[in-house]
Design a protein around this nucleic acid. Structure first.
Length: 840
RNA sequence: GCCCCCGUAGCCCAACUGGCAGAGGCAGCGGCCUCAAACACCGCACGGUGUGGGUUCGAAUCCCACCGGGGGCACCA
């Protein structure tokens, strides 16, 4: 467990001179944690109804063990945002949950011969205790686990809504297969073409699987990103755009000899249609099989076998020679009537475009490689000025003038595309179209520890949804050896579970034995959080209206595409179903960096893990949290070797001592020292701006400055009893509570607040800076000569440009440098700068 | 190979978006305490912003090229 009292280390004895009140984080943690638990201060439902609302959400945790350094950083950042908004007077929803289905639980269960649920829920309890001790301002009444039947019941319900609308469907396609483990693998379980668990090279296998039709939303997923611009990291938006991969082009139909239906291809370069010298269809497509001439059948079969033997590693190698077979058939180019051979190859993908391409070897490198491999003709149709690709082996994909292209000769690319698309449309053999590289989302897994797919397969009725009143379809209890991979889902061998009557006709039928990808669970949890215990519906519309969309989402960049894209898709689909009233789930997104060590990411296999529990035992919760936030901008990686939790502790000790001294002093009457008041006001002003803009590390630097200024005021200025010093210390405690809640609470208490009875620092109002204290009467103006600083004068802040110019030129140094000559130019930026340019 | 981000002091990082390069911290050094030390406290920054050009009265900031580091995509027609 994290941060227990065991193993005290002298590190914390950053004590004051003898007799003083020394910083003691052990005591603070032990004193305030139970008080906070009792007060339960962050319940979203307890805030007064008239408060404006904020929904602050951290990407929920996977319960793989106790919390680690990565959690500590991410949740510390989210907590700063949540606590700030609470102090600013918002009603804040900051819920906690677990993404608790998934493969690691299953693997652990197999290894230790136990029930994945036991392992999972034990880890969740450990993490929950750690979160509490780590002082995250969660609303513990809004808690969920995706593996609870009360949750996955609604995951199944949503799946059925998708199914009704045709957004969930089954199809056969090639999926990742691990020959060693005898199981299908998710894309994310394939690392570098190898099985993440056993290291075996992954191959493809054709299987019938469930998909979500995310491709139907490709354009909207793209368009709606404009609303996220400026609120999401640009990097994430770019990655999503690339992933969706919109490509404009045309469909062109080629008649095929001996076939009534033409074959349609997608091309982004219809202008090069006259340069098409052959056609290629995806070797593993039904089309290849159909087009293949009888005498070529054996050859194609042999080729397919050869392709299937390839591992992903080999398949993805870019410098691999092109392979393929001639199908013994010819297509006809619709614009010039030319007869071109039809080939099959694995470099054309079955599931992109139409699974067939027109090959223009002169202007596409892949086609050229293929043409040279099989001695096919190369015809230049765009004159780019570059040498002949047939000679050089280098295709010329650039712009130029069309040649050898009949009616579009002499045109440039854009004009040629428009013209040729018109011609194709007139003849009914083509049209402009858009293609996306986004694929439908494969959601079925042959795994146990996931949400069962609520479908019954009936020999007569086909795929039949489980009736709503029978949800959830619960997982049976399996453990240990029952879960060992055997090529089909472990659920398939539980006879009493799979055999059911068809809900429609009553005949003998069987349940679908697959479970859902855990990304399905996490695609809607932010909706469930507004009403996690509602057993009538997945979410309460009135609560959704109150809280959604999420105001600030916080999480790692590793989910830049999958989770965030899936969640955006779910939101749009649910909107279309009329279930919710918004189309984007997360208004703003903050990606935190990673915690690394000595320049390398930490991992068990490298043996360079920094243990969070140990750090917390050494330095305390506050020092670790403060170190995470102070290390740098939140989106940058933190190298734990470069930062100093001991240094953070030192700062907290200074604040502690300050509050202690001020708290013990008999504060005098009045406003107090003006200079101290000004420093405090400036700090409030700047720190507020900095927190708003997520520059938390700089905000902490400002708090350190304030601490230093107050220290000086106590030792060498108006003293600890000065009202302005007390005000400064009080405000410091409030602002510090975002980062170091235990120390801040302790200081708050020292300053005379009855924390035990509810006067906590978390309920203090965020300070405001009095504008009068921010205004300065005079400012130091820099006088430059030719851009170099040559003097300074103190001037009124309100000074006019002409006045300032005269005063600057009148100073002795400048007058001396001018020597009576007229400056060639004087730039005045009142009131802070004057630059005098001397004649050359 | 293509695209994106980042290079400021020994280290982590600031610099009001073109105006005095240094706020904060770590490490270090000196002082003060001490029998001595640790802790605390006080004090200490000639690096000109990766390199080379350019724009400008003025560049860490804008533009170009290169070097170094990180990330994403890589047969998507």
């Amino acid at each position: 467990m994290v941060g227990t009292r065991t193993g005290r280390v002298p590190m914390s004895d950053t004590s004051t001179p003898s007799g003083g009140d020394r910083y003691d984080w052990h005591t603070a943690q032990d004193r305030w944690l139970p008080v906070w638990e009792k007060l339960d201060q962050f319940r979203a439902s307890e805030y007064p109804a008239d408060r404006p609302r904020k929904y602050v959400l951290d990407m929920f945790a996977y319960p793989s063990g106790d919390l680690h350094m990565g959690h500590a950083e991410a949740f510390a950042i989210g907590d700063v945002v949540a606590r700030y908004h609470v102090l600013r007077g918002y009603a804040v929803l900051h819920p906690v949950g677990w993404d608790s289905f998934g493969l690691p639980a299953e693997n652990a269960a197999i290894k230790r011969d136990l029930d994945p649920a036991k392992w999972t829920y034990a880890n969740i309890e450990t993490q929950a205790e750690s979160f509490k001790r780590y002082a995250i301002s969660f609303d513990w009444s809004m808690r969920l686990h995706t593996s609870d039947p009360g949750y996955y019941r609604w995951t199944q319900w949503l799946f059925l809504r998708m199914f009704e609308r045709g957004l969930a469907y089954r199809k056969e396609s090639a999926v990742n297969w691990c020959p060693q483990d005898q199981t299908v693998l998710a894309n994310e379980q394939v690392v570098g073409g190898r099985c993440e668990r056993c290291g075996t090279a992954v191959t493809k296998r054709s299987l019938t699987q469930w998909y979500f039709k995310i491709t139907e939303y490709a354009q909207r997923l793209l368009d709606d990103m404009t609303a996220l611009e400026g609120h999401w990291p640009e990097r994430v938006l770019t990655m999503q755009r690339n992933w969706i991969g919109r490509s404009e082009g045309a469909r062109v139909s080629f008649a095929v000899e001996g076939r009534t239906e033409p074959v349609t291809v997608f091309t982004s370069r219809p202008d090069t249609l006259y340069g098409a010298t052959f056609m290629v269809v995806a070797a593993d497509s039904a089309l290849a099989d159909e087009l293949c001439a009888p005498e070529r059948r054996a050859e194609l079969a042999g080729y397919l076998e050869q392709v299937a033997r390839l591992s992903d590693i080999e398949r993805q190698s870019t410098d691999r020679d092109k392979t393929g077979v001639f199908l013994g058939r010819y297509a006809v180019n619709p614009v010039n009537g030319e007869r071109i051979p039809v080939w099959a190859s694995d470099y054309v993908l079955a599931d992109y475009g139409t699974g067939a391409i027109m090959a223009v070897p002169a202007h596409d490198q892949r086609d050229l490689d293929f043409a040279r491999q099989f001695d096919l003709p190369v015809r230049v149709v765009v004159d780019t000025g570059a040498p002949d690709p047939a000679q050089t082996g280098v295709a010329t994909p650039g712009e130029g003038t069309l040649v050898n292209s009949g009616p579009i000769d002499g045109l440039t690319k854009g004009d040629a595309i428009r013209r040729i698309v018109d011609i194709l449309a007139e003849r009914g053999v083509g049209a402009a179209t858009v293609s996306y590289r986004l694929r439908d989302w494969l959601l079925s897994r042959q795994r146990f520890w996931g949400c069962p797919i609520p479908i019954v397969h009936c020999p007569t009725c086909g795929e039949v949804p489980v009736p709503e009143d029978q949800l959830p379809v619960r997982l049976p209890e399996l453990s240990g050896a029952d879960l060992r991979p055997k090529g089909v889902s472990p659920l398939a061998s539980v006879a009493e579970w799979i055999n059911v009557a068809c809900p429609r006709c009553g005949a003998d039928a069987h349940r679908d034995t697959d479970t859902m990808d855990t990304f399905v669970d996490s695609s809607w949890y932010y909706l469930r959080f507004v009403s996690p215990y509602d057993d009538q519906r997945p979410f309460d519309p009135a609560e959704l209206r109150k809280w959604m969309p999420v105001d600030q989402y916080i999480g790692g960049a590793e989910h830049a595409i999958l989770h965030l894209l899936y969640s955006r898709f779910f939101t749009k689909a649910l909107y279309d179903m009329g279930l919710i009233e918004f189309t984007e789930p997360f208004k703003a997104l903050l990606n935190q960096g990673q915690v690394i060590l000595n320049g390398a990411s930490m991992s068990k296999s490298k043996g360079n893990l920094v243990d969070l529990g140990e750090e917390l035992r050494k330095y305390g919760v506050d020092a670790v949290r403060l170190t995470m936030i102070f290390a740098g901008p939140p989106d940058e990686d933190i190298d734990w070797a470069d930062v100093s939790p001991a240094g953070s502790g030192k700062f907290l000790a200074r604040v502690w001592r300050l509050a202690s001294e001020v708290g013990a002093a008999e504060t005098t009457r009045g406003e107090g020292d003006t200079e101290v008041r000004r420093v405090t006001a400036r700090t409030v002003h700047e720190a507020t701006q900095l927190v708003e803009t997520h520059r938390f590390n700089v905000a902490i630097a400002r708090l350190m400055e304030l601490t230093n200024a107050l220290r000086k005021a106590v030792d060498q200025g108006p003293g600890a009893a000065d009202p302005a010093v007390r005000e400064g210390a009080t405000i410091l405690a409030i602002m510090l509570s975002l980062f170091a809640p235990y120390c801040a609470e302790e200081c708050w208490s020292k300053l005379g607040h009855a924390v035990e009875t509810g006067d906590t620092v978390s309920r203090a109002p965020w300070p405001r800076a009095e504008p009068a204290l921010l205004a300065e009467d005079t400012v130091v103006c820099v006088i430059q000569v030719n851009g170099k600083v040559r003097g300074r004068i103190e001037v009124p802040t309100s000074i006019g440009a002409d006045d300032l110019r005269d005063r600057a030129l009148g100073t002795d140094t400048i007058a001396g440098l001018l020597g009576g000559a007229e400056p060639s130019k004087v730039i005045v930026r009142a009131p802070k700068l004057v630059n005098v340019v001397l004649p050359a």
